[in-house]
Amino acid sequence: MVALLAQRVSALWVALPAVGVCALLDAENARRFFLLMAFFMFGTMFAGRLDAPIRLVRTPAARVAGVAAVVLAVVLACVGVNARYVAWSAPIVCGGIVTAVVVGLRFGESRVLRPLRFMGRESLAMYLVHCVARQTLWQDPLLAGPTLEGV
């Protein structure tokens, strides 16, 4: 909805303030909304114009930054730092995206990655099915209501 309202404005004018708002909020759901909005708007910036980003990710500096971001993310996860939907994690996520694009460009046509390409094409359907399955099959016992256990 925000993208429709911001069609006449550069995506950068929506994405950067969204990261800033994310930095100011305490509630995780609100931070999640604004951080994902920023990445969505960055994606719309590059949609249909992939030549420049592809040239960028092929530079040695981008590759080093991407690998460094992935290593940093793994280290932070191993020491227990919660980087989930916080504004300072945006550069780390960008580095991970750069790494994924580089790997995809290099190995994307490999037969081994055919299942991954399928998941990418069908990701929205997979996400929606997983949400429904999670809610119905693995429902929180505290939310499920009374049981006959112990009767």
Rank of each mutant, 00 (worst) to 15 (best):
L56P: 00
V81T: 12
L4Y: 10
T44L: 15
W13V: 05
L124F: 09
L72Y: 06
R106G: 00
A90S: 09
L142V: 06
W88N: 04
F34G: 01
A65R: 15
L143T: 14
A77C: 06
V57C: 01
R121T: 04
R58N: 13
A100E: 01
T59W: 04
L105E: 13
R8C: 05
R117G: 01
G96K: 03
I54F: 14
Y85E: 04
T136I: 06
L56K: 04
E109D: 15
G95Q: 07
R49N: 12
G104T: 00
Q139G: 11
S110N: 09
Q7H: 06
G145D: 13
T59G: 10
L25R: 07
R32G: 03
L16R: 10
G96A: 04
C22R: 02
P146Y: 05
M119K: 07
S10V: 00
R106S: 13
A87M: 05
V93W: 11
F118N: 14
A27N: 11
A52L: 10
V102T: 09
M119E: 10
L116R: 00
A83F: 12
E122W: 07
P115A: 06
P60G: 10
T147F: 02
T99N: 05
M126C: 13
L137E: 08
A30W: 03
F33M: 09
G104C: 01
D140E: 15
F42H: 03
V75M: 05
A23I: 01
A23G: 15
V132F: 02
Q139W: 05
Q135E: 08
Q7V: 03
R8S: 14
A133E: 09
R8Y: 05
L50G: 11
R106N: 01
R106P: 00
R84W: 08
L16W: 09
L12G: 11
R114K: 10
A69P: 02
V81E: 14
D140K: 10
V86Q: 07
V81C: 12
I54Q: 12
L5D: 13
M119R: 10
G20C: 12
E28H: 01
F33N: 03
G96E: 07
A47V: 05
F118Y: 14
W88E: 13
L72K: 08
A18K: 04
V19R: 06
E122I: 02
P146T: 09
T44A: 08
F107N: 05
R106Y: 02
V103R: 08
V74L: 15
Q139H: 09
E122Y: 07
E28A: 08
V75W: 11
G145I: 08
V19M: 12
T99Q: 11
T44W: 06
S110R: 04
V21N: 02
C131D: 07
I54N: 13
Q139V: 05
V112N: 00
P141T: 08
L76M: 13
Q139A: 13
A62N: 06
G20L: 12
L50S: 14
M126G: 06
R84G: 02
V19G: 03
G108D: 04
E149H: 08
F33H: 09
V75Y: 13
F118H: 14
A61F: 04
L128E: 15
V132N: 02
H130E: 06
A90P: 01
